[in-house]
Simulated scan of single mutants.
Amino acid sequence: MPIGEICRHLGVARSSYYRWKVNENKFTQKDLRDQQIGDLCKLHKFRYGYRKITELLTDISEKTVQRVMQKYGWQCRVKVKKRKRTGQPAHIVPNLLARDFTALKPLERLVTDITYLPFGQSMMYLSSILDLFNGEVIAFTIGFTQDTDFVLDTLNQLPDLPEGCILHSDQGSVYTSYAYQKAVKEKGMTMSMSRKGTPADNSPIETFHSSLKSETFYLDDIYRTTNACVINIVEEYIYYYNNIRIKTKLNNQSPVQYRQLAV
């Protein structure tokens, strides 16, 4: 089809077409500037933000570099660093267990923690409390936010406790919060906490959470499913863990069987 006919169908003047054709391969100063910024972003594999890219250029302002990078999607792709919180948590207590995870009777020593459940349509969390006497999960909550109310819901599921009961956790902000510490005292418990950055100080509950994921989601290759399915899997496994799954150290009995015989 002749060029004149194409221009007529598109409603474009022939002169406009030829003017565009002459300038097609010509780069403006802005085009060259944008290309320079893009080349630097690609050279550093998008590890730099606009401030660092500006430092590598001359006579181009930060705002211009930022605008160009946003326009073409060239922003820094490195995960945002978490800022270290300043100040001290609300309330830290000593590690009373000192990795002695034995208990002579039920509800004498309890451990608690939160684990991620990244298998559903959205991130979910499991808060659980485990009795060191027989390894039984005596309270748990599945939720979408790991705030103070989340762990308080787990705490409020506990039955009447004997005098001198110890509850051990890490130094997470939900456990050091005033509201949680108050609720623990009202239940007559003594709080104990792991040393900062020492998961081994709370290994029994860490091991349980690891077993839960290994023996369900990872074993069955379930990496993405519905939230309802995640909840169902966790609830069924905890029932199985407490009532059916035997442990060598419990004389090949389940936690519930061992507790019933002890009572």
Rank of each mutant, 00 (worst) to 15 (best):
2 P>G: 15
4 G>T: 06
6 I>Y: 11
6 I>G: 06
6 I>E: 10
7 C>Q: 04
9 H>Y: 12
9 H>C: 06
11 G>L: 05
11 G>E: 08
14 R>H: 11
23 N>Y: 07
43 L>F: 12
44 H>C: 00
45 K>T: 05
45 K>G: 00
46 F>P: 00
58 T>E: 14
59 D>A: 11
59 D>N: 14
60 I>F: 09
60 I>E: 10
64 T>L: 07
65 V>C: 03
67 R>Q: 14
70 Q>G: 15
78 V>Q: 15
85 R>A: 13
86 T>W: 06
87 G>R: 12
88 Q>K: 14
89 P>H: 10
91 H>W: 03
95 N>R: 02
96 L>V: 10
96 L>Y: 02
97 L>G: 08
98 A>V: 06
100 D>T: 01
100 D>C: 09
104 L>W: 01
106 P>G: 06
111 V>T: 12
113 D>H: 02
116 Y>C: 00
121 Q>H: 10
123 M>A: 03
123 M>D: 02
128 S>W: 00
129 I>R: 00
133 F>T: 06
135 G>P: 02
137 V>F: 01
138 I>F: 04
140 F>E: 11
142 I>C: 01
144 F>N: 10
145 T>R: 15
146 Q>C: 13
150 F>E: 04
151 V>E: 02
152 L>M: 11
152 L>E: 09
154 T>L: 07
154 T>K: 10
158 L>K: 04
162 P>K: 06
163 E>S: 13
167 L>P: 01
168 H>M: 05
169 S>Q: 02
170 D>C: 07
174 V>F: 02
177 S>L: 04
178 Y>R: 10
178 Y>N: 13
180 Y>H: 11
182 K>L: 12
182 K>V: 03
184 V>Q: 02
184 V>D: 04
185 K>E: 14
193 M>V: 08
196 K>Y: 06
203 S>H: 12
204 P>L: 05
205 I>M: 12
205 I>C: 08
206 E>G: 08
207 T>F: 08
207 T>M: 07
208 F>G: 03
215 E>H: 07
218 Y>A: 11
228 A>M: 04
231 I>G: 01
234 V>Y: 10
235 E>W: 00
236 E>L: 11
238 I>A: 09
241 Y>M: 09
246 I>W: 01
246 I>E: 08
246 I>C: 06
248 T>V: 08
249 K>E: 11
251 N>G: 02
252 N>M: 08
254 S>F: 00
262 A>V: 01
